[in-house]
């Protein structure tokens, strides 16, 4: 798949009431890409989305869309549509009229409107609901209508601001799947904002991790999960054990008094680093066979696995294992070289 850049964001900043919300964002978004802006609340992800949508203007920086400066174009003339956080469906219009709103603004002939809206209703499986009032619908139905209302305009880019936040778990998972499907079928770029890392990992082609107004890491879900660039990303994406370590030489890192083989290189000899190990990558073995040992502190059954906390000289290790361990027993732990992720300290 050759990727054509669609939106280029250059050194974007936003100041609001004396607070700097975006501190210089550089980001390129490609055609047909599913991009997720991931971060905790207050990290600036919604602001970034609102700037792309045209509801906020940046303090400085550029947003280029298909080679044109997007900031100068008012939101109602952009080929971009938004699915709002709480849907923002018009309460005075019924389902059909809500979806038809954008087409009517463009003065599309009424016969074509009927056809396109009905097709949308069919897609979201709400054909019988055309004349219903918005407040008579469930959250999940409102959600689909909000998506249909945006998509019926055939935008180049669809912005989604935590659209699944108000739904319960089961519905949310169904919608994640459906959204991904829609995106693939229609060939539209999706920019999706969420604070839910699982959602981000499931749906995205590219994840942009934001914190404190800055991009922490850009990459595929696999990259982000397996090769977090810093402590923040490692902590935010799933559970992880982060350990102080020393890079002895290329491919050799020392922590817990043991030199491990690893796959990382390019650090100075004896440079202090941090090592990330995912809980499922730690393996509990007999204490003689372990690279290092610890005492089992607690065991909690989590359904698919046991969550075992092992204390090693006062430091806590989280281990996910399909096998239980006895609390109070001394165990050994090993980890495969590919599962040791070395990162620089304090980025």
């Amino acid at each position: 798949m050759t990727k054509t850049p669609l939106i280029e964001i250059k050194n974007l900043t936003k100041e609001y009431d004396g607070d700097i919300i975006l501190k210089g964002i550089d980001l390129t978004i490609h055609e047909d890409e599913f991009v997720t802006l991931l971060g905790p609340s207050g990290c600036g992800k919604t602001t970034l989305l609102r700037i792309i949508g045209g509801f906020d203007t940046p303090t400085s920086g550029e947003v280029v869309f298909k080679g044109k400066d997007l900031i100068q174009i008012p939101s109602y003339k952009r080929e971009i549509n938004t699915v709002f956080q709480k849907y923002a469906l018009f309460p005075h219009l019924n389902v059909f009229d809500n979806i038809a709103f954008g087409l009517r603004m463009k003065k599309v002939p009424e016969s074509e409107i009927t056809e396109r809206v009905n097709r949308m209703l069919k897609m979201i499986k709400l054909t019988d609901f055309a004349n219903r009032r918005i407040d008579s619908l469930s959250g999940g139905q409102q959600q689909r209508i909000a998506i249909a209302r945006a998509l019926v305009n055939r935008p180049k880019v669809l912005l989604l601001d935590e659209p699944l936040g108000a739904l319960d778990l089961k519905l949310r998972q169904d919608m994640q799947y459906e959204l991904k499907e829609i995106q693939r079928e229609m060939g539209i770029t999706f920019i999706f904002v969420t604070h839910d890392q699982e959602e981000a990992l499931t749906m995205s082609d590219t994840i942009v991790v934001l914190n404190d107004g800055l991009i922490q890491q850009i990459g595929t879900p696999v990259d982000i999960y397996n090769e977090p660039r810093n402590r923040f990303v490692a902590n935010f994406i799933g559970e992880s054990n982060i350990v102080d370590a020393v890079m002895i030489e290329d491919y050799k890192v020392k922590f817990e008094g043991h030199v491990f083989e690893c796959v990382d290189r390019g650090y100075n000899p004896n440079e202090a680093v941090e090592v990330v190990i995912r809980p499922e990558d730690l393996q509990i073995v007999d204490k003689e066979k372990g690279a290092f040992t610890g005492v089992v502190d607690s065991v909690i059954f989590k359904g698919v696995h046991y969550e075992i906390i092992v204390m090693v000289e006062g430091r806590e290790y989280i281990v996910h294992s399909t096998q239980s361990a006895e609390v109070g027993s001394v165990v050994g732990m090993i980890v495969a070289p590919a599962d040791i992720h070395v990162m620089e300290v304090g980025i």
């Binding site: 949508g53 045209g54 509801f55 008012p74 939101s75 109602y76 003339k77 952009r78 971009i80 549509n81 938004t82 709002f84 956080q85 709480k86 923002a88 469906l89 018009f90 309460p91 005075h92 219009l93 709103f101 954008g102 009517r104 603004m105 463009k106 209302r149 945006a150 305009n153």
Partner: peptide, 26 residues
């Protein structure tokens, strides 16, 4: 809801249309 006004703009309504189709009825 301010989001409704944003939503109308997003769907292509200009200022006059935002008023006549959304704000006024609401």
């Amino acid at each position: 809801d301010k989001n409704l006004i944003d939503a109308a703009r997003d769907l292509g309504a200009n200022n006059r249309q935002v008023f006549s189709k959304v704000v006024f009825p609401l």
